[in-house]
Simulated assay, not measured.
Amino acid sequence: MDSLISSFKDRCNEEISEHHIAENLSNNNYFLLRNVLESTDDGISFFDNNGTIRLVNNKFREIWNIPDDADTEKNYIDAFVKYGLAQLKNPDHILSKIRRFPRSAENSSDVLYFKDGRIFEYHLFPVVTEGVIKGHVCSYRDITRRKKAESDFQEYARELERSNEIKDLFTDIIRHDLLNPAGLVKGFVEILLKREFDPDTTEKLCAIKRSNRKLIEMIESASKLSRLESISELEFREFDVGGFMRMAVEALHGQFESKHIVLENNITGAHKAKISPIIEEVFVNLLSNAVKYSPENSKVIVGILDNGDRWKVTVTDFGEGVADEDKPYVFERFKRVNKVAVKGTGLGLAIVKRIIDLHGGEVGVEDNSEGKGSVFWVTVKKA
């Protein structure tokens, strides 16, 4: 459209005078110009130095509701007052600008807000021949949809900001207002267990302790996941992936012992990668998941495979395994496909996926080729 207006301005510069445009152009050129103007969705008008309208297209008439039989060869301001002023929300501001149009030597633009909800953007171009202004071209473009989209986007951004504020508040509530009372319950239950000798009461206190421990785990996991979702990127340095796996193994030593599970560590040598120390959380969750779903007196195997430009870290268990139809969902929050004898929040693997996503890696689960069970794996880029 801009090229059409430029072409129209050039044509006006070459051939227009203060007589009717049709008198100064050959019939062929005039009708060609008319066809070009009628093919655009923009309203186009030309008026001379006296403010007399010399040429308009039908889109211009449509915008301003000008009847087809109305005489366009009249004063531009008079035509605007007669047909357009009553339609605008800001008529006084626009009228003051339009009064200056015939004397303007510079490009001008503004936005017109119609009472019926339409929004147009106009652009005014002076037509200059040999340094003398011969008139002006004014184009009107409908930007109603664009403005509506901008308004919707701004409102969405405000809602998103409010949502993030609520999420941050909820995270603080989880981290402090819920975790502190749960910690107190834990402390008092442990004191009562040391003083209580009645088997029935002791059993009930142990049940409270187990439930409270799961509550604390859920609060901590939800808090971690919430913080991770607000992070867009991490700071990476060169580390040995195996070193973080060893730290995770040490952290979960007690869990392995409690179920008499043997850990088989097949990681040897150095495996350098550009990673963040938060990667330890991935291995802790994978190992914890393996312990939860493994039977007593079984084993868990950890290893690191060379996968081209990435390291593939694997955690293999010999539990019930994951059905093929459930594999695509195990890393989604609150999705725990096998609930037999295990209670949990389903957040652990969601935390794994979020951290690996931030590392630009992948996650997955496969069947254990050595028997029943699963192989959970993640990949990170080599250094």
Rank of each mutant, 00 (worst) to 15 (best):
D71V: 11
D142R: 04
G361W: 00
G371Q: 04
V330Q: 13
V127W: 15
E38A: 03
R100Y: 04
R61C: 05
G303M: 02
S3M: 06
D48M: 07
N27T: 05
K353T: 00
I216E: 15
P199F: 03
P277D: 08
K89Q: 12
L25G: 02
L85H: 05
K224C: 07
D200A: 08
G348H: 09
L263A: 12
R336N: 14
D116W: 08
L184S: 13
G373F: 01
G373T: 01
K327W: 03
D326E: 15
F8W: 11
E106T: 05
S17R: 02
E14D: 14
M1Q: 05
W311I: 01
H19E: 13
S369Q: 08
K209F: 13
S39I: 12
L25W: 04
I143A: 06
I231S: 01
L95I: 04
S3I: 08
L25A: 04
T202Q: 13
D41M: 09
L88G: 08
N285G: 09
I191S: 08
L85N: 04
C12N: 07
L95M: 14
E155I: 10
N285S: 14
V315W: 07
S3R: 11
I66M: 15
K89E: 15
F8Q: 02
L205S: 01
D198I: 03
S223D: 15
V375S: 01
T52A: 08
F101T: 06
K59E: 02
K89T: 12
G371K: 03
I77H: 07
T72S: 07
F80I: 14
K97E: 10
I21P: 04
V300Y: 01
G117V: 10
I231G: 00
V262S: 11
R227G: 02
A341Q: 14
A70G: 05
S223I: 01
H176T: 12
E14A: 10
K339Q: 09
E106G: 02
V352D: 00
F47E: 11
H19W: 12
D200C: 03
F114M: 07
S230Y: 04
